[in-house]
């Protein structure tokens, strides 16, 4: 493989689009957003907030508090009932099919269950993040340009599993699979990464490794990151901003320093339990 992009210690030389060159700050805006499910369950209740470029936001709350709905409404995997969500100034809520795909291209997503094609190679999985950039015909034939392959290899290197590129995804451990899905979001050249309980199915050690990866990518590449977590000590350790949800409402929005045990007790409506702490570290 010819090295098109010489790799050095300096992250700036990696072949990712430099987000800072874009005009204006990249923001996610929630404007009076509510979501009621068809069965009457309230997912979100009148959310008004702005997530700024480069923030690492951790969403906390009990299960069923609307964390997943919040995250999935940003790229419209879940439709909202009223209000509007804007990403980089473009309305997600009112976007047409192709507009929506263009917005989604800028938003990488990481799932609790990794959502990889287990039978395909790691490289195939990472490349699948690139399909939004190419014509349907080209992707149907599976011809990715060499730049995409290099981009994917570099993305894998970011999460330290470059040497696994041509191994089948199901032969990797859980932590490695989650790194592949992070690499998929990086190869997508996403400017936002949404992570829905990314460490819920991992053991404590790999949990920290994956969180370290996310934090490093957030810092080094200035990628806005929004993470759902239920471990509150992890939230305090990694977040630059914590948002607490309770019954679909924002009940806390502040820095990790402000997120005291009392604040969490307020979010959860009860004292913090031992199993909501990851421990260690």
């Amino acid at each position: 493989m010819a090295v098109l992009f010489p790799i050095t210690d300096n992250a700036e030389n990696l072949p990712f689009r430099n987000p800072l060159q874009k005009v204006g700050p990249f923001m996610i805006e929630f404007d009076k957003v509510s979501k009621v499910y068809p069965n009457g369950t309230v997912g979100l209740r009148n959310i008004n907030l702005t997530i700024n470029e480069g923030e690492l936001v951790v969403i906390v709350g009990l299960s069923g508090a609307g964390k997943s709905t919040f995250l999935r409404s940003i790229n419209r995997l879940t439709d909202i009932s009223t209000g509007e969500i804007r990403v980089n100034g473009n309305s997600v809520t009112h976007a047409s099919g192709s507009q929506l795909r263009h917005i989604r291209r800028d938003i990488g997503m990481i799932f609790q269950s990794f959502n990889l094609i287990k039978r395909s190679t790691v490289m195939r999985n990472v490349l699948s993040g690139r399909v939004g950039y190419h014509s349907t015909l080209r992707t149907m034939l599976g011809w990715f340009p060499k730049e995409d392959v290099d981009l994917s290899l570099d993305a894998l290197q970011r999460v330290n599993i470059r040497e696994k590129a041509y191994i089948r995804a199901d032969q990797l451990s859980g932590g490695q699979q989650q790194r592949v899905s992070i690499a998929r979001a990086l190869a997508q050249e996403a400017r936002v990464i949404l992570a829905d309980e990314p460490v819920a199915s991992l053991d404590p050690l790999t949990t920290r490794q994956v969180m370290d990866d996310l934090k490093r990518i957030n810092r080094d590449m200035n990628i806005t990151t929004v993470i759902n977590l239920h471990f509150i000590d992890l939230a305090r350790e990694y977040a630059t901003r914590i948002i607490g949800l309770r019954a679909g409402e924002v009940v806390f929005d502040g820095t990790p320093a402000e997120a005291t045990d009392e604040a969490f007790a307020e979010i959860y409506g009860r004292p913090v339990l031992q199993d909501e702490l990851l421990g260690g570290a």
């Binding site: 995997l77 399909v131 992707t139």
Partner: peptide, 17 residues
């Protein structure tokens, strides 16, 4: 597994992709 479909949709792929 429905997951990979969701991941592809989230990355901006169309139905055929």
């Amino acid at each position: 597994d429905r997951g990979p479909q969701e991941a592809l949709i989230a990355s901006g792929a169309n139905r055929l992709q």
